[in-house]
Design a protein around this nucleic acid. Structure first.
Lengths: 240, 240
DNA sequence: ATAATAGTGTCTCTAAGACATTATGCG
DNA sequence: CGCATAATGTCTTAGAGACACTATTAT
C-alpha cells in the first residue's frame, strides 16, 4: 500500500503572487481630492498556453529555493522591492489540468507594498506588465484601467485559474484588514485618514461609518498636513 | 531569465492531515458526567527518517490525484470515513531540508469527523496509530493519552515539522469555531450544550460565559434528553 | 437532602452602525 | 461666500464578559 519515496512521480511546483499596492486616481479638478485605489500587477503572457492573456506574476519553484523565497524573488524581479509584507494564500492543485503543459500545483502568495518603494524598469525580461485597479462591489470583483470606469473581471482575459486566485486574495485581504494591521503595508509612512479609509471601503464595497473611531488606536497623529486642494486640509498620520 | 516548463526539476509533493474528532473521557463516577475532549490521530513511523516517532497521517501526492483528494484518500484509509469536512490549512515548504530524503513540500489539511462514523481496522497497512487527546492551555499545545493528565507537546516525539502543523491546525480551528459552524463537524447529529461548549473551551483554554446565548441561533432543541447521570439531564440539540 | 449539572436572568461594558454638527482652507 | 472635505459628537443597538439564581435528576 505504501510506496517508497522514490516510487512517486514528482510534480511541477509554481508560485503565483498577487502584488497589491494603493495609488491615487488622477483628477484634474482642483476642488476634489484624488481618491485612493487598489492596484494589482498583471503580466501579459507571451507564450502558450494562454498566449496574450493576463496572468499573475509567478513561475516555477526551483528545487533549491524555498517556496516563499521563490515568491519573494518574483516580486523583487517585477517591482524591485526586497522587503515587503507577504503571506501565503492558498495552494491550488485540485484540478489535474490547471496547466495544459502538465501537472502543476501552485502556491499563491499575497504581497502588499507601498508604491513609493516600487522601482521602475527593474524587470530584466521583456514581458509587458500593467497595474490594474481592482475593487469589490456587491461581492463582485471589478477592474479598471484608469481608476474611473470599473468593469466585471470576467471581461478581462485572465490565464489559468488566476482570476480565482485574485478573487481569493482580495477576499482574504478584505477580512484581514479588520483584525490585523496589514492595511498599512499598502501605504507610505505618512497618510491621511481618507487614504486609509478608502482602502477599507474599496475592499468592503461600502462606506464605513466612524472609521476614525475604529482606527484611532492603531495610528498616531503628526504635525504635518496634506495641503493643496480647495478644501480643509487633512492631518497626516503614521502607524502607531 | 525565464526558463521553460521542462527546465525545472520537479519536486516531491505530500499531504499531511490533522484528523480531529471529539470523544468523551472515561469516568466511573456516577455523579459526574463524562467531559468531552478533542482527539487527533497520529501514526507511528516504522521506517527512516524519524523511525519510531509519531507523525500525522499523510503521504506523497500521486501525479494523477488532486491534492485535496489525496488527503481525503488518506483519511478514508485511516478512518473509513468518506464524506467529511476538510479544509486546506497551509503549505509547508520554506525549509529545503524538512525531509532528509530530499526536497518535499507538504500541503496540510484539517479534517473534522464525528467519531460515530469512524470504522475500526480499516487501515490495510500495519502501521500503529493512536488517538491522542489535545488541548490549548495558556497558548500552549498539550496532549494526553488518557484524557486526564495533559503534558506539553514537546514531551512527545513528533516527526518532521508535524508538531508545528498540529499547532497551526488547532490555532486555525480555535479561531474558526467562532465565526463558522465547523464545530458541529466534530459531534454526532445530536449533542448536549455541554458537549459543544467543551469543544469551544478546550480550544480557547478558558471558560466561555453565556455560551447558550452565543450559540442559540445555530442550534435547535429536540425532545430528546441525555439521561443516566445523577444530576439534571440535558436536552439534546441538533445543528440548525 | 444533596451533589452535580442544566438552564435562565441580569447588569455592565465595549464596539459598531448611522448620522448630525462643526471646522477649515482655497477658488 | 460657498464648495468640498476634515474632524468631532451623539444616539442607538448588538454582543460579550461576569456572575447570580432557579430547576432537575439519581444517589
Amino acid at each position: 500500500m505504501t510506496k517508497s519515496f522514490d516510487a512517486y512521480e514528482k510534480i511541477s511546483v509554481a508560485t503565483d503572487v498577487v502584488i497589491l499596492t494603493s495609488d491615487e486616481v488622477e483628477t484634474n479638478n482642483p476642488r476634489m481630492s484624488a481618491p485612493k485605489g487598489l492596484k494589482v500587477l498583471l503580466v501579459k503572457r507571451d507564450e502558450e498556453p494562454f498566449n496574450g492573456e493576463w496572468s499573475l506574476p509567478g513561475g516555477f519553484v526551483d528545487v533549491n529555493v524555498g517556496i516563499e523565497q521563490a515568491a519573494r524573488n518574483k516580486v523583487a524581479q517585477k517591482t524591485g522591492v526586497e522587503n515587503l509584507y507577504m503571506e501565503q494564500l492558498y495552494t491550488y492543485g485540485n484540478e489535474l489540468d490547471r496547466d495544459p503543459r502538465g501537472r502543476v500545483i501552485s502556491i499563491a502568495y499575497l504581497a502588499l507594498l507601498n508604491k513609493e518603494n516600487i522601482q521602475q524598469n527593474t524587470d530584466s525580461n521583456t514581458k509587458e506588465s500593467q497595474w490594474f485597479w481592482v475593487m469589490i462591489k456587491n461581492g463582485q470583483l471589478l477592474y479598471s484601467t484608469d481608476g474611473k470606469g470599473y468593469y466585471l473581471i470576467d471581461n478581462l482575459k485572465i490565464a489559468f485559474d488566476h482570476k480565482q486566485i485574485l478573487q481569493d486574495a482580495l477576499e482574504r485581504l478584505k477580512n484581514k484588514v479588520l483584525y490585523t494591521d496589514v492595511a498599512f503595508q499598502l501605504l507610505p509612512e505618512l497618510f491621511t485618514m481618507r487614504e486609509l479609509q478608502d482602502i477599507f471601503e474599496l475592499l468592503h464595497g461600502k462606506t464605513i461609518y466612524s472609521f476614525r473611531r475604529f482606527i484611532e488606536s492603531k495610528v498616531e497623529e503628526t504635525e504635518l498636513i496634506s495641503d493643496g486642494k480647495a478644501h480643509r486640509p487633512a492631518k497626516l498620520y503614521r502607524r502607531r
